[in-house]
Design a protein around this nucleic acid. Structure first.
Lengths: 226, 226
DNA sequence: TATTTTGGCGTACCATTAACGCAAAATTAA
DNA sequence: TTAATTTTGCGTTAATGGTACGCCAAAATA
């Protein structure tokens, strides 16, 4: 039997919510193949590290962002997806809060940047396919887990949360029903701070109450926002 | 930099619905490590085959069952999960209809058998962890996708479907409401055949209408059985 | 004849959703 | 200074759908 000759890598789809739009973190390749194409951050797994550690290391080395949420997405293993050697890539799905959006100063050759998912460059390898799957995962998960809060600042306005949902789910939401629904879940903490953004009545700041959510989740509580 | 020395394997959690209970397909290992332990079917991926092909080949070689539903479950890559070399395993989730339950005659050393998920032997490696994740996936998916039909014979009784749901979801279901709900979805075809099983009025046979479901799904139809 | 299982009807109650009205607090325009 | 506009925050109500049942007839077996 022929000796197995397959490499194992990780790739990360890192989402950030910037300028009221969903953005994804990409790096510009400076080696062949796909030289000068934009690609998902990632790379080969080291012998002694776990897959998650590999993702965290690559993100640290290549982009400098701090991840707020990480989960495995899917593994891609078609022969031929990398023109050099066969590579099986375990893709991860990550979210970053605005506080952690700042990326590496591009002193080195590698360029790093946020791209709106609506204006993507051509991507290397099968990374567009991976990105699409991640977008679907985000869209679905937003409805039954409170991961939207990992895309917002720690303190946020209700209108921010609402805009996030309408943007990512790509549909209108009745503002008043949305507010009622979310508040009834009892997972937000109303802060004693108001913010005035341009015209209109100043809005209250809220915080996601992680502890309260963990408590409710234990009792089979269902987060469900459509 | 040290050369990467990690193997890539696939494992499959194959479910069958037998004797009104959920069963899983296991093979008995005849080599170290975990010699004589039961394990999930699987093995190393060949250089030229896709991950799905690897799963299908291993199942053919080791068990002889024909798969009716297959999807990727999760990848397990902790260093140390295999005591010999580092192995990253892409686990798959599979369903088999009763028509395809017959397994390999155990002429060779390898033993293959169906086990009720309620009476499992001790499993090799981290396979119990993988199996648990697959059970969760099945339980969840049963509620929002019509995969239960891939565990039943092509022609089935309503009482079979109901028992399947109560068994896997581990909760009681009101017979009348369940029937009403499923029939209202309009995805079953009522056959002109009746079956008498022991005492009681003979029951009608039904078939899952795959085409009709595909059509409805296009129009954003939601399968949702709780 | 009693019992069991299927198949079907109806209905009361409850929780959730959807649609919408309106006042309060700020800014901008007249 | 006042009026119009914008955004926030809170309420009301009708429609919908799920859940929990009761009831009964048909068709088989014990």
């Amino acid at each position: 039997m022929v000796r197995q000759n397959i490499k194992i890598a990780v790739d990360a789809v890192v989402f950030g919510y910037k300028d009221r739009n969903l953005n994804v973190l990409l790096i510009k390749r400076d080696v062949a193949p796909y030289r000068n194409y934009w690609a998902l951050p990632g790379g080969l797994v080291l012998n002694e590290e776990s897959l998650e550690q590999a993702v965290e290391r690559e993100l640290r080395e290549e982009t400098n962002v701090t991840i707020d949420y990480l989960e495995q997405l899917y593994s891609f293993g078609e022969p031929g997806r990398d023109p050099r050697n066969r590579v099986v890539s375990v893709a991860y799905f990550a979210l970053v809060k605005p506080e952690h959006h700042s990326i590496k100063a591009d002193t080195d050759a590698n360029d790093v940047a946020w791209f709106s998912v609506k204006e993507l460059p051509e991507l290397a390898f099968d990374h567009l396919k991976i990105l699409r799957m991640a977008k679907d995962r985000l869209k679905n998960k937003l409805s039954y887990e409170p991961i939207g809060f990992d895309l917002l600042a720690n303190k946020f306005l209700f209108s921010d949360l609402e805009k996030l949902y309408t943007t990512i789910l790509e549909k209108d939401i009745d503002r008043r029903n949305f507010r009622k629904k979310i508040l009834s879940l009892d997972i937000l903490e109303e802060l004693d701070e108001k913010v005035s953004e341009g015209r209109g009545r100043p809005a209250n700041l809220f915080k996601f109450n992680q502890k309260q959510y963990a408590k409710l989740k234990k009792d089979n509580f269902l987060f469900d926002i459509k």
